[in-house]
Write a protein that binds this DNA or RNA. Structure first.
Length: 608
RNA sequence: GGGGCUGUAGCUCAGUUUGGUUAGAGUGCCGGUCUGUCACACCGGAGGUCGCGGGUUCGAGUCCCGUCAGCCCCGCCA
């Protein structure tokens, strides 16, 4: 466009640039009767013959452009008629109030329109492989195509919204932490392997033949070193990388808000995290969280919900039915109890409405997660029904009512077996039954801390102790002898934030005592030499004055996904990978020429 | 590593159960009409390796085997 013919600046000139005076979606009534220059993408064209409308779109939203013979040169009108979806144009014209019968209350800019008299076609769009405008949930292209044509997908207002929320969340976190005296420090991406559980991504070193860097699974060790260095309060928006299989909520690279602070105890850390989350949710999601969050011990969580990340939107709690339901002649239960197991279950309010088929699905679900199956009992007007019905007459039935609140119309779901089995199964059943019965508290934000995790867990296969959180966690009772003698009984100063059944953050007070640390590493089976090899630099640093310290890490992708209600974190990551860890748009990973590999001192094996 | 779902026009899907004439719809695209639309409307048109390979059959989008891709789940991921 040649010379500016309008006013130099408009009512909101902060965003005015060489190419535009305002953003489309922000064109307010303040602009009425002024000339404006806008630029953006052609969202949609409505050609009515004598008059033509274009929705012009940019990140801020869209505004209606009107082209008509009364105010457009014939040439301009003809040029506008040639425009197609996603062409980039610049226009100039007068901002006018729309005729009363042509207002659009659904659009923030729906009270005004721009009568364009100058049109500059900046860049035309080829025919679109996937649409940007006019998609509904039903016609959304497959995820494969959305990822392949990610630029077009990211243009969709829904996606832009996700990233604006993400930005607001990040900005709020930075602000909240900065206000409390935290400083942001970057730690290396090229690191060495750390004793965390996941597989590392490795990077060959060109100048050190045969040696590799590891990409960090988290900045864990570095942030502890910063504490020893006296940096008090640190945070980082840390990219973390793990070479494990993907899921809807797992990507090989993801971001966590990583926080560490010195001279603190559990309450200090939880307070910082709560205030950070409160600010984030207020700013990014418009939700005011009530802090402090309730706390639940790990043991209690498993007993009442069967999981260490309970969804408190579901009101039902697990109860122990071993005493009540064994010895009443129901063989499966009696056998379980003889084998040292328990019968646990919960009352699903209104669950008697579930069909046999639905219950069969629940049983199947219980088996899928490793239990022998699910038992059920319906309380109906005409009496009990289900496999247990004939065993629960009189006293037992009465107890179900008086002790466990079972009423007519309810369903009792039970699983028998060892605690870990019944817990996993009942957690799955509780979620599924609640979903089917609509028992989920709608629109609720149920936060809690799960605290008092064990320091170690028995490895499922070998039974040997493995770190429940990570090997640098401070036990609550800090005697090295007890750690060596009965490691599985030791409670750790570790905690998780759980939101609506999803673990969003996790942290601990770290071990700054060399004696205790040594005992922990021994229990985990590290020889002195192995420990020295893998993280000697941390142990070394601890020798020169280590403050008590602790922190947490918040999964940013999951958090933002929760805020916007995205089914997958891929919707809040600009360029995510597929479940096969591929980047469909850019084509990653890709083959490398043998020459380039040779330069890295790497040779490929024969394919097997 | 294992289990499941999906793959048909640029896109979203129907058709596959029960093999059979020319594979349909909506949308997008192209052409046309239209001065107040906003999912504009109306008329016309083009557009298909039924993911790929093999097999069964007189005949395969449809049945069988293999394979690729995407998604969901288990394992795995402190």
């Amino acid at each position: 466009m040649e010379e500016r013919s309008g006013p130099g600046v408009g009512p909101d000139d902060a965003l005015a640039t060489a190419w535009r005076d305002a953003r489309c979606g922000e064109l307010s009534e303040l602009w009425l009767d002024r000339r404006v220059r806008l630029a953006g993408w052609v969202h949609r064209v409505r050609d009515l013959g004598g008059v033509l409308f274009i929705d012009l779109r940019d990140r801020a939203g869209r505004v209606q452009l009107a082209f008509g013979s009364d105010w457009c040169a014939t040439e301009t009108l003809a040029q506008a008629r040639e425009l197609g979806s996603e062409d980039v144009i610049q226009v100039e014209g007068e901002v006018l109030r729309r005729p009363p019968e042509a207002l659009n209350p659904d659009l923030p800019t729906g009270g005004v329109e721009v009568h364009v008299d100058r049109l500059n076609v900046i860049s035309r769009s080829a025919p679109l492989p996937i649409l940007v405008a006019g998609l509904t949930e039903d016609t959304l292209p497959s995820e494969e195509l959305r990822l392949r044509h990610r630029v077009l997908d990211l243009r969709r207002p829904e996606m832009i919204h996700n990233f604006e929320v993400r930005h607001a969340a990040v900005a709020a976190a930075r602000e909240a932490l900065s206000e409390e005296g935290f400083i942001e420090v970057e730690t290396p991406l090229l690191t060495r392997r750390t004793p965390e559980g996941a597989r590392d991504y490795l990077v060959p070193s060109r100048v050190n033949p045969g040696e590799f860097y590891a990409l960090p699974q988290s900045p864990q060790l570095y942030k502890q070193l910063l504490m020893v260095a006296g940096y008090d309060r640190y945070f980082q928006l840390a990219r973390c990388l793990r070479d494990e299989d993907l899921r809807a909520d797992r990507q090989p690279e993801f971001t966590q808000i990583d926080v560490e602070m010195a001279f603190v105890d559990v309450d200090d850390v939880l307070g910082v995290c709560e205030r950070m989350l409160k600010r984030m949710w207020s700013r990014a999601a418009g939700v005011e969280l009530e802090v402090p969050f309730p706390r639940l011990s790990y043991g209690e969580a498993l007993e009442r919900y069967g999981t260490d990340k309970p969804d408190l939107r579901i009101p039902w709690k697990l109860v122990d039915l071993t005493g009540l339901l064994s010895g009443i002649g129901f063989g499966i239960f009696d056998r379980t109890v003889e084998e040292g197991g328990r019968v646990r279950g919960f009352v699903a309010r209104g669950g008697a409405a579930l069909s046999r088929g639905a219950i069969a699905t629940l049983d199947e679900l219980a088996r899928e997660v490793g239990a022998k199956g699910a038992m059920w009992l319906k309380a109906r007007a005409e009496g009990w029904s289900g496999p247990l019905a004939k065993y629960v007459g009189g006293e037992v039935g009465g107890a179900l009512h008086s002790e466990h609140g079972m009423e007519e119309g309810d369903l009792l779901l039970m699983v028998a077996g060892p605690d870990p089995e019944t817990g996993r199964a009942l957690d799955a059943l509780r979620r599924e039954a609640a979903a089917r019965l609509g028992a989920l508290e709608e629109g609720a934000h149920r936060w809690l801390w799960v605290v008092d995790f064990p320091l170690f867990q028995a490895d499922a296969g070998s039974g040997t102790p493995i770190a429940a959180h990570h090997p640098f966690t401070m036990p609550v009772e800090a005697e090295p002898e007890r750690i060596r003698e009965s490691p599985l009984e030791i409670i750790a100063n570790a905690y998780d934030v759980v939101y609506n059944g999803v673990e969003l953050a996790s942290g601990s007070i770290r071990c700054h005592d060399p004696e205790i640390q040594r005992a922990i590493l021994e229990v985990l089976g590290f020889t002195r030499k192995e420990a020295e090899d893998r993280f000697g630099f941390l142990l070394e640093a601890f020798r020169y004055g280590a403050p008590p310290h602790g922190g947490y890490a918040l999964g940013l992708d999951r958090t933002v996904a929760m805020m916007v209600g995205a089914p997958s974190i891929r919707d809040v990551i600009a360029f995510p990978k597929t479940t096969a860890a591929r980047g469909l748009m850019e084509g990653t990973p890709s083959h490398v020429e043998p020459d380039d590999l040779a330069g890295l001192h790497i040779q490929l094996c024969e394919d097997d």
